[in-house]
Each structure stands twice: as C-alpha cells, then as structure tokens.
C-alpha cells in the first residue's frame, strides 16, 4: 500500500478511457487511441477507430462483426505481451465468448488486474472465469447489492422451457441481449428440447459466430426466413430488448413476453418494462461473486467501475477491511 502511494497508479481513467502510462496503452477506450486492449465485444467496451486492437482470439470474430475491419491482434488466454515497462496478459472473465480480464505486471513487481465485465456462474458458451492473484483489482460493480444472487442457470433454463411449452397457442418472445445472453439461453435450453428457436435478424450473425466457435446450441431459424402471415403459435422467438414495442412485433399476435436479465430479479423492474415474465439470467457477477472475487484475488486495493460502486466500496472498506475506492468510467453496465 505504501508503494501505491509513492508510485503513480499503474492504470488511471482519462478522457479516452482507462490508461496505462507505463505500457502506453488503453483498456476498452471510448475514444480512438493508438493501442487498445479490449476485454470483450459489447458496445460500451469496444469502440471503433483505434489504430491497433489486442483481444482474446475467440472474441476477435465478434469484434470484427461489431467494429468492422480494424487492425486486430489476437492473443491467447495467458499469453504475455510486453508493452514498455509492463507485461500484459488476458485471462478468461466468463462473461461472453472471448471475454477477458486484463492483467498488467510492472517490472517493479506490482500486479494490477482489470476484470472487465465478468461472472462466475456456469456458462457453456465461454471459458470459465479464472482467478488471477493481484495487488490492485479494478472490478465492475453492475449488480453490487446483496439483493442480487443468481439462481442456478439450469433452473432458469427449466423455467424458460416451462414457459415456452406452457404456451402452445401463443408465440413466446424472449428478449435477451444479442451478444452472449441469447446464445447462453440457446445452450441452456438444449438440455430440455431439440426444437428450433426463431431469431430476430440482429441475432443471426452473432449466433452463427458462436456456432462456428463450437458452442452447442438449439437449432435456429431467422424469423425473416418465414413467409408473411406465418403462424408463430407455440414458437419461441429470441429478440433484442430494442425490438420490444417496435413494428417488428406486429407479426406476433397476442404474444407472451419475457426478458432474460439479472435486472429481472426485481419485480418492479419487470413490471415497469411491461414484460409478462422475467427470467433471472445475468452475465455479470452477483453480490456474493463480487465479494468472493475480491477475496480470491487477494487484492489489497480495490477500485470499482460502473454500477453500484458506492455501496461496494463502503462494504469493502467497512466490513471486509479492504482499501477500496470508486473509479469514474463511462462504461454503461446497465445492459445485461
């Protein structure tokens, strides 16, 4: 700790994003920079226009799909790369396919870790979270309140399947984020059925990339492949949340709607958004996973980014006895 106070921090927030001066690179920058290390392909973490990108190899096809043709350098998990006075390596974050934590080790011995978005629950669509010991941990805090505790994903998959099979006379539209969540649902449902699921157009290419990466999921068919006036009764349709209330919905008469998200743990959230059903399925760490991760990493200092930073910081300081502070970033974090 005395060392951290006498030497400048290894990673600091700047107008461009999190920046490591000792290695002269940015992590998940929100403006164009010369060298960007990316944790994953979600829009609030991956933005186009930087000169060169470093990311885990499984995630690069997703990044190409999202950012277009940029200069990507794929890294394997654990592969070390030297930038100036630091060595950088990526470690699985368990968030979505190819998601990474960024480990930065300075030649003076200090180790900093940025988790990016992460979760510790089972997910067959991506590599599991890896515990990386560090001195200073920069962690997300999207769901950092003790009311957030995820049920086992198998049980959520079962509930989604029950809902689907319980509505043979109506279409079931499940809203889920197009990258990661949708594929996780398709994988979880494979334990219950082999029926075909219909996809909104925004999900088709991403699901195809997951399939090419070897992820086992239910068979899918784009909604657009079916003729106008097709009867979707009894079908399950996956769509991004932005499709709710759009003209696209008109083809599904008297649909039952659901949303797969960690936010659905709170009844008021579901009712406010007007979904019939909420399924608690999150790609972020819940409260207990955040605390477990701080302990597992053995960090003496914890910096928090997006979400319920204030509460996590106070809890870590007062209850866990860890030196914790909030770090201001532009990550949205509300999407799940």
């Amino acid at each position: 700790m005395t060392k951290d106070q006498s030497t400048p921090p290894l990673i600091v927030p700047t107008d461009q994003g999190l920046y490591c001066a000792a290695g002269d690179f940015h992590i998940d920058p929100w403006r164009p920079v010369p060298r960007a290390v990316l944790t994953h392909a979600h829009a609030d973490h991956a933005r186009a226009g930087s000169q060169r990108y470093f990311a885990q190899a499984d995630g690069v096809p997703l990044l190409r799909h999202r950012l277009g043709n940029q200069d990507f350098e794929p890294l394997d998990y654990g592969e070390r790369r030297r930038f100036g006075a630091v060595r950088v390596s990526l470690h699985s974050a368990g968030h979505v396919l190819g998601s990474s934590q960024v480990r930065v080790e300075h030649d003076d011995g200090r180790v900093w870790l940025f988790t990016g978005d992460f979760k510790r629950d089972a997910d067959p669509t991506c590599a599991p979270f890896e515990v990386v010991p560090c001195d200073t941990l920069i962690t997300e805090a999207t769901f950092a309140l003790p009311c957030y505790r995820w049920p086992p994903v198998e049980r959520v998959g079962e509930r989604i399947h029950q809902w689907w099979s319980g509505h043979p006379d109506r279409p079931c539209i499940l809203f889920a984020y197009a990258l990661g969540k949708a594929q996780r649902v398709l994988a979880a449902l494979a334990a219950h059925t082999d029926r075909t699921v219909h996809l909104h157009g925004a999900m088709v290419p991403l699901t195809e990339l997951y399939r090419r990466a070897g992820v086992t999921m239910l068979p899918t068919e784009p909604v657009s492949a079916l003729p106008r006036g097709h009867d979707f009764s009894g079908a399950l349709i996956l769509a991004p949340p932005s499709a709710a209330g759009s003209p696209w919905m008109r083809r599904f008469k008297s649909a039952s709607t659901g949303f797969a998200s960690g936010w659905m743990r709170i009844r008021g959230n579901r009712r406010r958004r007007g979904y019939d059903y909420g399924f608690e399925l999150s790609d972020h760490a819940d409260w207990s996973a955040l605390l477990r991760t701080v302990r597992d990493c053995g960090a003496r200092t914890v910096l928090t980014t997006h979400g319920r930073s204030d509460e996590l910081v106070r809890y870590l300081n007062e209850v866990e006895g860890v030196d914790a502070r909030a770090l201001s970033t532009l990550y949205g974090g509300e999407d799940d």
């Binding site: 003790p146 009311c147 009844r267 509460e311 106070r314 007062e318 209850v319």
Partner: peptide, 14 residues
C-alpha cells in the same frame, strides 16, 4: 449492516 439493508430497500422499492 443496516445502511446496506437501507440502500437495498431503496433500490428494490418494496
């Protein structure tokens, strides 16, 4: 801690 119960209650709203 009580303050965290309070924050959580404010967040959940019920």
């Amino acid at each position: 801690p009580d303050w965290l119960v309070e924050e959580t209650y404010q967040h959940v709203g019920d």
